[in-house]
């Protein structure tokens, strides 16, 4: 919007204001009626709820209108075909600051919950890493790397997994034939397979499938971390990024050269320069979209979580 029109608008508003100062309450109520009608129009595709709302008219009479404008918070997502196009003019990048991770696993829990992941399939794993005996161990969250030269996409026989213009690698489980070649090809082992009927299916039955959210899952198909493109489309951070209490994950758009972990917003290039960012197994030529910051000047000392591991193993049995 140009400055001129903005000024015009402001002028108009001021005029309106002065005029409206004299108006009485009834006008406001009438306004609400109008607004109600407007809302009805805006959400006309939604079903009528049968509920009634009383609104005061200008004459001081109470009338009933239908509250058709009850809004559902969840909006569904794009179709498998549309999901093959990336979000225009975006190139997503994630930065994982290893110095902040303390294996709280909030990222993983949030990811599991919102993707309705069932069974033992885990999209985001947090590994204990130790380069060699004499070096310090650290925690490393590992999502899908969304490589720019994805080996998994190379080998897929049916384009069930594909690379989008915005950098995201997705899986369309309505096309996947379940050959698992992508799992063999992925050097980061980020993919999992639905060996049996997904457990939490009942929770997602009837939901429209979109590769952008990855559920409902289907038996005999591959799945993996998807960078939550359904959220990115709404300008929201992926679940893991939003859930992390320590700001380990930064998400951003390469074209904007900015990443954010929700609390702070930083220049991506500057961050890489200042903290010596690197990519996992970059030597393989996969060009990942996920960057790591080395675990130096850590926020937390390294501690093994004893209880949680044994819990998990019990569950697995």
């Amino acid at each position: 919007m140009s400055q001129k029109t903005e000024e015009n608008n402001e002028k108009k508003t001021r005029e309106d204001n002065s005029r409206r100062d004299f108006l009485k309450l009834g006008v406001f109520a009438a306004g609400l009626t109008v607004a109600g009608a407007g809302l009805q129009k805006a959400f006309s595709e939604e079903k009528e709820t049968g509920e009634k709302v009383k609104v005061l008219t200008t004459e001081g009479k109470v009338v009933e209108v239908d509250t058709a404008h009850i809004k559902k918070a969840e909006v569904c997502c794009v179709s498998p075909k549309e999901s093959r196009e990336g979000i225009p003019n975006k190139k997503w990048v994630m930065v994982i600051d290893l110095s902040r991770c303390k294996h709280a696993l909030k990222c993983q829990h949030s990811c599991q919950k919102y993707h309705h992941l069932s069974g033992m399939n885990v999209w985001l794993k947090v590994f204990k890493m130790q380069e060699s005996e004499n070096t310090a161990p650290y925690w490393m969250p590992k999502p899908c790397m969304h490589c720019d030269r994805p080996p998994c996409v190379k080998v897929c026989p049916v384009s069930a997994t594909y690379k989008r213009s915005d950098g995201i690698v997705l899986v369309d489980n309505e096309r996947c034939v379940g050959c698992r070649f992508c799992m063999a090809a992925c050097p980061y082992s980020t993919r999992s397979f639905n060996w049996e009927e997904p457990e939490l299916l009942s929770e997602t039955t009837g939901e429209t499938y979109s590769p952008e959210r990855g559920f409902p899952q289907k038996r005999g198909t591959v799945e993996k971390c998807d960078f939550c493109p359904d959220l990115l489309r709404q300008g929201k951070l992926p679940h893991c990024v939003a859930a992390c209490p320590n700001g380990v994950f930064y998400m951003g758009d390469m074209t904007e050269d900015t990443v954010t972990n929700g609390d702070e917003t930083l220049r991506f290039s500057q961050l890489m320069k200042d903290k010596s960012g690197y990519r996992l197994n970059d030597i393989l030529g996969t060009h990942p979209s996920v960057y790591y910051l080395p675990p130096v000047n850590r926020l937390f000392p390294f501690k093994e979580p004893v209880a949680e591991n044994s819990d998990k193993e019990k569950k697995a049995e």
Binding site: P157, V158, R175, C176, V177, G178, C179, N194, G220, T221
Partner: peptide, 11 residues
């Protein structure tokens, strides 16, 4: 070996 043999036509 395929998880979804009925989709072989996708090939």
């Amino acid at each position: 070996d395929m998880g979804r043999p009925e989709r072989i036509v996708n090939m």
